[in-house]
Design a protein around this nucleic acid. Structure first.
Lengths: 215, 215
DNA sequence: CCGCATCCTCATGGATACTG
DNA sequence: CAGTATCCATGAGGATGCGG
């Protein structure tokens, strides 16, 4: 039975780009859904587990709204439905990275009891390292909770990706607190190594970056 | 009687910069309040009228939350209380401008029945003109609904301000639709002039910008 | 299992009236 | 002017059901 509830579309009614963007992606969970899809398409259930706490009906409604707004698209994958960003939706990467950078001070208090997904580092690493300069193109892998996140810095700045075809030679293993601490500048490599929470090719890590950020 | 409702602080509970930023500024109206304060401090009533539609209790609650989060601060001005952004709050300018730029396609449908405040152009103009190059430092004033918005483009990019001490020599008069149309590239200067909706020193306007954006 | 749809409860948002 | 207090509508969160 088709009893689709109209989402009411409560709009700010303002002739302003920010307000109109907000009408589209400002509802609760929306930006976090986009964040999940930034590294690549996901299935419905992968979204529910990664977002831990969202009600399934809400996720359905939000995905529909984002699809109607041209931010998200459904694809029929091999084993079911895949949700992916449209090209325009993927361009949200820029403002979201800027917002992640603004929020750096909020990460200094540490993880606490919060949930964490290695996937989120794909947005966070480039955001936090935005001002890092690099003498040559550099790739460093972070093995976080079994998932390989590869950070790449070249002249156009830092980017990150999940499980690329070509793994980098330098791979470090560490938990989220250590990775964020290192990247946000609140922790030195020496401190992390001394605590036994950072393992891997430390020399290569030192060589990879300038001393500016102590990484 | 002190019957202050505890805002409950419903958090996403995620160790992620974006999520924590959202816990702080993601509630309804929050980012629009910040947008209002970007060009300069305002009083409570100025916020209620400019945001047209926000309930006074909500505005109170949001201002308190933003103050507690270190984004907004209260100042005691000459004639009452002024709300202003903290230095960190003002840094939201960068992600908000990026979001405004992302939302450019949403402005192409025109104003419609939406409300409008010239103040909003302080964010919108630099956002939409982000990729405009300029041979020399240029200042152009837009007189919109009686308020003078001054756009300045130099080698570090475009910025805008309200009613500066030193008004520019080139001042144009136009409504919001025309200004946005010109700046977003959906309208040529000739079209705007032909419609009688753009008046002022058009020659200077032509000379001020490159032909790239037809402005 | 996966991808939803329905139902229920309670927190949040919105409009209006009122006050120091 | 700068908020409070109050009431009602809406939206979020959680549990459950159900066809494929």
């Amino acid at each position: 039975m088709a009893n689709l509830k109209e989402p009411a579309a409560r709009s700010y009614g303002q002739y302003c780009g920010l307000a109109r963007a907000w009408d589209l992606v400002g509802d609760r969970w929306n930006l976090l859904i986009v964040r999940e899809l930034l590294p690549g398409p996901l299935r419905f259930n992968e979204l529910t587990t990664s977002l831990a706490g969202i009600a399934t009906n809400l996720l359905t409604e939000r995905l529909r709204a984002l699809e109607a707004g041209g931010v998200v698209e459904r694809r029929l994958g091999d084993r079911g439905i895949l949700y992916a960003l449209t090209p325009w939706g993927a361009e949200l990467h820029t403002p979201m990275e800027a917002l992640g950078r603004w929020a750096a001070p909020l990460l200094m208090s540490g993880r606490g009891a919060d949930s964490f997904q290695p996937r989120w580092l794909v947005l966070a690493l480039p955001a936090l390292l935005h001002d890092v300069t690099c003498t040559a193109t550099t790739e460093v892998g972070f093995n976080v909770e079994g998932l390989l996140i590869v950070l790449r810095i070249d002249e156009s700045g830092p980017t990150a990706a999940i499980d690329p075809d070509q793994p980098p030679t330098t791979v470090l293993t560490a938990g989220p607190d250590v990775v964020v601490g290192l990247v946000a500048g609140g922790l030195t490599v020496e401190q992390a190594v001394a605590a036994g929470e950072l393992t891997g090719d430390i020399e290569a890590l030192h060589a990879a970056f300038t001393d500016e950020r102590r990484l």
